[in-house]
Write a protein that binds this DNA or RNA. Structure first.
Lengths: 221, 221
DNA sequence: AATGGCATTAACAATTTGATAATACATTTA
DNA sequence: TAAATGTATTATCAAATTGTTAATGCCATT
């Protein structure tokens, strides 16, 4: 079940949004201001955050920028709520890294169609992407990003990392790995895997591949 | 979701148009005059721009001409709003490169039918154009423009570039490429793709085709 | 028939990648 | 502690892959 966090200083709006979202099966949390929104976001780990732009204290835009700095919120969906009056807010909002915006007064149907279509959009991308906080593996682009920097992995290295990361915490036996990546035909020596593992560790400079002695390897952040 | 920019100096008109467009699921931005319209157009990158002809400062026609000079707006839809009185405006407007015009007073139903039908018309053509900032690929005329200069690509070169550019960042496997461009019947040698790639790189003089060794090629600006 | 443009191939150079061996290190076991 | 076992690291070489250039054959046009 998808989780949505709503932040607005008007209780009415919170109620309306919460009602509608819950009616469609989303799990909802609310926050009355920007500071609380950030706290709740960290605790609740929502898939979508709806942020009012004008809030006392921290504005929605500030909340958004703050969250985007955290790896856990790199790819969280964010929608802004703006009052009719603020004109430039929209442009600025999208630049800050929001995925969409919504103008007040809110019409539930418009809201829900936006929310649903955002989730639909993301669910298509999910096939190709393994998203692990600061580490993003994209099978379509054969790319690996860590802390927003591209890591250049060779083919076998990529396949190996990709395999391990596809099921974090699962221990892959050396045999399993050989079968998955090298196939049953090719026969390679024992040290081959180690060497590739080492290169990945080196390039990634991140201790995410654990050795399980006598058994195999596993991916774990 | 399609993006629409509306420029008019009358707030009433902006409100009416915005309301109707958003009700149909368009993402809307507004501008009160020509200068702001141009700024917003650049930032917002709308799919459709609705321009009032009579605006203080820059007229809609001037805005249109200015935008059409920029490659990013070569194929953006533009609709003019004209008062009953201006007679010649329509003709002039279409000459400047507008796709349609609308007479005031505006009737929402007429507006929406025009907008929708324009998008429908374009959605058929959209296959023909790939627009990537300074690089414009037009499948209809087999033409490629880079920085407003025509690049002359041979057929296979064009198809290849066109394929890669159709999904920037996606890595196309050599097999995929062969299937898409040469089909399954024809069998060509291994170096054929490379040679074409090289020629494209040479002619485009732009480092946009990346090699992913052992995998394939991808387009990336 | 001659020309010019294009697609393909051949041949070779350059580069990248993968596998292995040799060695060093770490952990467990006797 | 010494031996045994398993893994890490490094250098090195072989193999695979791609880049480049020139040459060939084809086709349409003149």
């Amino acid at each position: 079940m998808k989780k949505v966090l709503i932040a607005d200083d008007e209780q009415d709006i919170l109620d309306i949004l919460q009602f509608n979202l819950e009616a469609e099966g989303y799990k909802v949390e609310t926050a009355n201001n920007g500071v609380i929104a950030i706290e709740k976001a960290k605790a609740f780990q929502p898939d979508l955050i709806i942020l009012d732009v004008m809030m006392p204290g921290k504005t929605g835009i500030e909340v958004c920028s703050a969250l985007r700095l955290l790896p856990a919120f790199k790819s969280t969906l964010i929608i802004f709520l703006t009052a009719m009056s603020d004109d430039t807010a929209e442009v600025k909002g999208l630049e800050t890294g929001a995925d969409d915006y919504l103008k007040k007064p809110i019409r539930p149907k418009v809201l829900m169609s936006k929310v649903n279509s955002l989730f639909r959009r993301v669910s298509k991308e999910i096939d190709h992407n393994i998203n692990l906080g600061e580490l993003i593996i994209n099978r379509e682009n054969f790319s690996v990003r860590y802390k927003n920097e591209d890591i250049n992995l060779a083919r076998k290295e990529f396949e190996l990392l990709s395999l391990l990361a596809s099921k974090p915490s699962k221990v892959f036996l050396r045999n399993e790995i050989l079968n998955q990546i090298w196939g049953t035909e090719v026969i390679v020596g024992d040290r081959t895997i180690d060497v590739h593992i080492r290169k990945i560790r080196q390039k990634l400079n991140l201790d995410c591949i654990k050795t399980v002695k006598g058994v195999g390897y596993k991916f774990e952040l």
